[in-house]
Amino acid sequence: MTIEEKMDHFRSLSLESASSKSAESLSSYKQSLDDDLELHKETASQLAEESKKALMNQVRANSKKKLSSEQMKIKKELTQKQSAIKIEVFDRVREKLLEYRKTNDYLVYLENQIKNIMSEYSDVDITIYIDPNDSSLLDELKSKTGGNIEIYNKEFLGGTRTIVPEKNILIDNSFKTRLADQQDLFAITL
């Protein structure tokens, strides 16, 4: 073999070896890139899924917040409406009480109330008070019941208030107190 043949043979072996190593290196690099691509696809898919879940959670949270806000608004409006109805109902009741106080039935009611109190506390001195607006009934009530009846210094919508000093008792049968008690108990249910 001549030198040239040897050189050709060496060149071809070198080229084959370099080509083989290059192909191997390229294949290894391609595999590495394919692995990186798969890893990137999985990571991107996970990130997209997490982003989707986060967005869904945000939408749910916003929906719940808006729903809660609307519920509070409706409850507030309902409470205001109930309050307005309650005021209207008790304004009408006050009007009916004023009408009732102009009737003879009211006079009979006061007489019976005074007689009942006097019989219950017959063993002690008591003072029975009537509303200042009922002052026109004072003389008639005194003559029909024989009780110690006076005009109270403040209005209480009718009825009576009684003081039993010996027992330190106030008996409040006034319409104002009864109306306030009923107003506290009054509830509008749906």
Rank of each mutant, 00 (worst) to 15 (best):
M1Y: 09
E4D: 14
K6C: 05
M7L: 15
D8I: 10
H9E: 15
H9M: 12
S12M: 12
S12T: 14
L15C: 03
L15Y: 07
S17P: 00
K21P: 00
K21V: 10
S22M: 08
S22T: 12
E24H: 08
S25E: 15
S28N: 11
S28D: 13
Y29W: 11
Q31N: 15
Q31C: 04
L33A: 13
D34E: 15
D35M: 09
D36S: 09
E38A: 14
E42W: 05
E42C: 03
E42S: 12
T43L: 12
T43Y: 08
S45R: 13
S45Y: 07
Q46R: 12
A48I: 06
E50C: 03
K52M: 08
K53C: 06
A54G: 05
A54V: 05
L55S: 15
L55G: 04
N57W: 03
N57F: 03
N57E: 13
V59L: 14
R60N: 14
K64Y: 13
K66S: 11
K66I: 11
L67H: 08
L67Q: 09
L67R: 11
I74W: 03
E77D: 07
E77K: 10
K81L: 08
S83T: 09
I87D: 14
I87G: 02
E88R: 07
V89T: 11
V89N: 06
V89D: 04
D91A: 07
D91P: 00
D91G: 03
D91Y: 01
R92Y: 03
V93C: 04
R94G: 02
L98T: 07
E99A: 12
Y100N: 03
K102M: 04
T103G: 01
V108A: 05
L110A: 04
L110M: 08
N112M: 08
I114P: 00
I114K: 00
N116A: 11
I117F: 03
E120N: 07
Y121E: 02
D123G: 02
I126E: 01
I128E: 05
I128M: 05
Y129L: 08
P132D: 11
N133Q: 14
S135D: 10
S136L: 06
S136H: 11
D139Y: 01
L141R: 00
S143H: 02
S143Q: 08
K144R: 13
T145G: 02
G147I: 03
N148S: 09
N148V: 02
I149A: 01
Y152S: 10
N153G: 03
K154Q: 09
E155A: 10
E155P: 00
T160I: 15
I163P: 00
I163V: 12
V164Y: 01
V164Q: 01
P165S: 04
E166C: 02
E166R: 04
N168A: 08
L170Q: 07
D172Y: 05
N173P: 00
S174G: 07
F175A: 05
K176M: 06
R178E: 10
Q182D: 11
F186C: 09
T189E: 15
